[in-house]
Amino acid sequence: MSGGRDTLVGLLLSLLGHALLLGLLIFGYRAPPAPLAPAATGPVIQARAVDEKRIEQEMERLRQEEAEKKQAEEARLRRLEAERKRLEKQRRQEEKRLADLKRKRAEEQRRAREKKALEQAAEKARREKAVAEKARLEKLRREKAAEEARLARLKAEKERLAREKAAEQKRLAELEAQRKIREQKAREEAARKAREAELQRRLAEEEARLQAERQRRLAREARLYQDAIRARVQRNWRRPANVREGDTCQVLVQQIPGGEIVSARVTQCTGDEIFRRSVETAVLKSSPLPPAPDPDLFEREIQFTFIVTE
């Protein structure tokens, strides 16, 4: 409402200014231009020796200046006329402009009303919107708060869970560590047992091998030992000339370690006294018998069987 009044005031002020300016142009403005006075009294000829030429030049200059003043007056009159025309034109333009302005103002007022209505609607919408917005924001705020609370709860829960999980993991880790330790120990134990078993097995194998080796060696030495005994007794057995083929005589001999014979006894004999004596002598003459190469091979008793063959 105030906008309209302002616009009206402005319009009046503008009309007053224009009228004043138009009065001046028509009535008031006849005073010589003040700026020319100083110029007429200003230049003071000080020269005492003025030569003709200079007077001429001065006279020329004065005539020129008179010409120029007349021309300038004429130009000023033309310019005034142009100005009056232009002002006329300008007044018509101004009238037209004022009409335009009036029409324009109506238009503007209508627009302003429309605008105001629009603005009011907008304001209303704006207010409604604000309310809605506020509600929305409130809702949002509540929701956010709820969300935050939920999130906080979630976070707390999460942290709790995390703590629990961490604790559980720690427990599990400890359990796992213990399990690993147990497993490690079990593996080490198993490995140790396996090593021990392997060692035992190798020892047993080695033992068995040594035993077998020893048995073979003993068997070999036993053969050699028996061969040595047999060879010695054979070397000492003179077969009597009158023995019969197939006659046999057994002599049971007791020896002591070192081979010395402590007794020799014929236990069974199919031959005669000569045969008996020959085998007894063969055995007794063989004392000491070859020593046993190994104490295990020593036998206190040896039974010699003498057989008469062809």
């Binding site: 028996q226 000492n236 049971l252 085998v279 036998e299 040896i302 039974q303 063959t309």
Partner: peptide, 11 residues
């Protein structure tokens, strides 16, 4: 334990 030795050859 009695060692059995057979003698079939003499000198």
């Amino acid at each position: 334990a009695i060692l059995q030795i057979e003698i079939t050859e003499g000198v």
